[in-house]
Amino acid sequence: MTRLAFIGGIYSNYPALVATLADIERRGVDGSWFLGDLGAFGPHPNRVPELLIEKQIPGIQGNYEESLSSGATDCNCGYTDPRDNAYAQISYDYTAANTDDALKQWMGTLPREIRMDIGGLRILLSHGSPRRINEFLWHSTSSEPFLERLCEESRADVILCTHSGLQWHRRLERNRHVVNAGVIGRPANDGRTNVWYTLLTVERGEVSVEFVPIDYDHQTLAREMRAEHLPAEFIETIETGWWTTCLEILPAKERAHSKF
């Protein structure tokens, strides 16, 4: 049996990362990876990459790392609504201004994807999707034929991704799987303050996926965000578990479960 942990977008949520790594350590896994978007949303963006480097956790670039390491003026998050883009720009400007150059350079050295073979299964880690770093893969709008095509074109049996912020798993024919690992950067827009990471187990060629809820010291995070003068809307999300920003991108189905 092989058990692997995947950490989706961290969005500078340092206390959530500490709690997630403690949970992973307690459970014992064969490997852990991050899936990109270390910054955004939260405060003090150096802390997350510093901890990942210290713990020697491997991972891939998200659009944030791509933009920060190349000196881009925006996050290239892929939003289409001006309201989403306005808040995304606040996050990006803050993160870009408060990330050390050495860490930005390190972000530029991260791979865009990681491939591995686990018990004969080809596993592919990507940020948005295998074909586009900022593609949003949602459960309600990713049809099975489409996901089959992504697996086929990227020559993968199991695709892991993040970026959209909500975790899900689709089991396809011929033991193929697409897993959105969710994020530990902000709650899953469900009125609860916890965040989620993903455990993937391969046993005798069978894949199982567990989404793990992580409670963390979200009040400390909220306090630090206030001290950094980050938008009140961001802090409200951390304190209530409901997305207040960057939610126009949600499909109708996911939006229907949303408070805002």
Partner: peptide, 9 residues
């Protein structure tokens, strides 16, 4: 036909 071609939406 769309199913065979992997159409998303």
């Amino acid at each position: 036909e769309a199913r065979r071609l992997g159409v998303r939406d």
